[in-house]
Simulated assay, not measured.
Amino acid sequence: MYRKEEQPLPPPEKFELPFEGKLSPNNRWVIMAELIPWDDFEEEYAKLFSAEKGAPAKLFRMALGTLIIKEKSGTSDRETIEQIRENPYLQYFIGLNCYQQEPPLESSMLVHFRKRIDGELINKINKKIVKREIDKSNKEVKKKDCLQ
């Protein structure tokens, strides 16, 4: 049996959000953002640019974060930017301080990001993440041993 909606939908500006204007720390993008050592690679990424030529570079977190979102979602460059524009969790993941309705970058930037962030750099980042997680796990084990 079909049941008609009892109340009309509110206009978008009155649509209630479940997280009351705050991001959930349990969201997968928030958790992943905490795992990646963004600052450890910012300087290495910045060396790829000339101080005298061209427009200022986007931060490493925005570049890598956008590429990660694209790979995880399996979308085109344009669709990736649209997803980021619509989703506050993705905006947080790429390093924005607050939600913005305008796209934070042009889809053509992803071509440049892919040229600069190669497999070697990705492997360095992955190794650093794994090492940090192993070190954290070892500290927790030592802490448990001391308590027993």
Score class of each variant (00 low, 15 high):
residue 96 L to R: 06
residue 136 K to D: 08
residue 111 V to P: 02
residue 48 L to A: 10
residue 71 E to D: 10
residue 62 M to S: 04
residue 97 N to I: 07
residue 11 P to M: 06
residue 57 A to L: 05
residue 89 Y to V: 08
residue 36 I to W: 01
residue 24 S to C: 12
residue 115 K to T: 10
residue 110 L to Q: 02
residue 136 K to W: 09
residue 8 P to Y: 05
residue 113 F to V: 03
residue 6 E to I: 14
residue 24 S to M: 05
residue 82 E to H: 11
residue 101 Q to V: 14
residue 44 E to L: 12
residue 82 E to D: 13
residue 50 S to E: 05
residue 117 I to L: 06
residue 139 K to L: 14
residue 3 R to F: 12
residue 24 S to K: 04
residue 120 E to R: 09
residue 102 E to D: 11
residue 64 L to E: 01
residue 66 T to A: 15
residue 137 S to F: 13
residue 90 L to D: 00
residue 73 S to F: 11
residue 2 Y to Q: 11
residue 51 A to S: 14
residue 111 V to M: 07
residue 18 P to A: 06
residue 71 E to K: 08
residue 111 V to Q: 06
residue 109 M to V: 00
residue 41 F to V: 06
residue 120 E to W: 10
residue 29 W to K: 01
residue 137 S to C: 11
residue 51 A to V: 11
residue 66 T to Q: 05
residue 51 A to M: 09
residue 145 D to Y: 11
residue 134 I to Q: 07
residue 80 T to R: 00
residue 128 K to H: 09
residue 136 K to R: 15
residue 54 G to Y: 02
residue 17 L to S: 11
residue 75 T to K: 14
residue 137 S to I: 11
residue 97 N to F: 09
residue 120 E to P: 00
residue 94 I to N: 01
residue 11 P to G: 09
residue 35 L to P: 05
residue 141 V to K: 07
residue 63 A to L: 03
residue 96 L to W: 04
residue 21 G to L: 04
residue 1 M to Y: 07
residue 70 K to P: 03
residue 116 R to I: 03
residue 122 I to A: 08
residue 33 A to C: 08
residue 124 K to S: 13
residue 103 P to W: 00
residue 139 K to E: 13
residue 111 V to I: 15
residue 28 R to T: 12
residue 12 P to C: 02
residue 75 T to I: 10
residue 91 Q to M: 03
residue 79 E to P: 03
residue 22 K to H: 13
residue 33 A to W: 01
residue 147 L to I: 15
residue 105 L to H: 03
residue 107 S to V: 03
residue 84 I to Y: 03
residue 15 F to G: 04
residue 74 G to Y: 04
residue 110 L to E: 01
residue 44 E to K: 07
residue 118 D to Y: 00
residue 36 I to F: 02
residue 35 L to T: 07
residue 91 Q to N: 03
residue 119 G to Q: 12
residue 108 S to H: 03
residue 60 F to S: 00
residue 13 E to T: 07
residue 6 E to C: 11
residue 96 L to H: 05
residue 82 E to P: 02
residue 109 M to P: 00
residue 122 I to Q: 04
residue 43 E to F: 06
residue 82 E to I: 08
residue 36 I to D: 04
residue 103 P to K: 05
residue 146 C to T: 10
residue 40 D to L: 13
residue 71 E to I: 09
residue 14 K to E: 15
residue 11 P to F: 06
residue 36 I to Q: 04
residue 79 E to A: 14
residue 109 M to K: 08
residue 23 L to M: 06
residue 130 V to H: 03
residue 121 L to H: 02
residue 40 D to E: 15
residue 97 N to A: 13
residue 70 K to C: 06
residue 34 E to M: 06
residue 77 D to T: 08
residue 26 N to E: 13
residue 122 I to L: 14
residue 27 N to V: 03
residue 144 K to N: 06
residue 20 E to F: 12
residue 27 N to H: 15
residue 126 N to C: 13
residue 95 G to C: 04
residue 5 E to V: 05
residue 55 A to G: 06
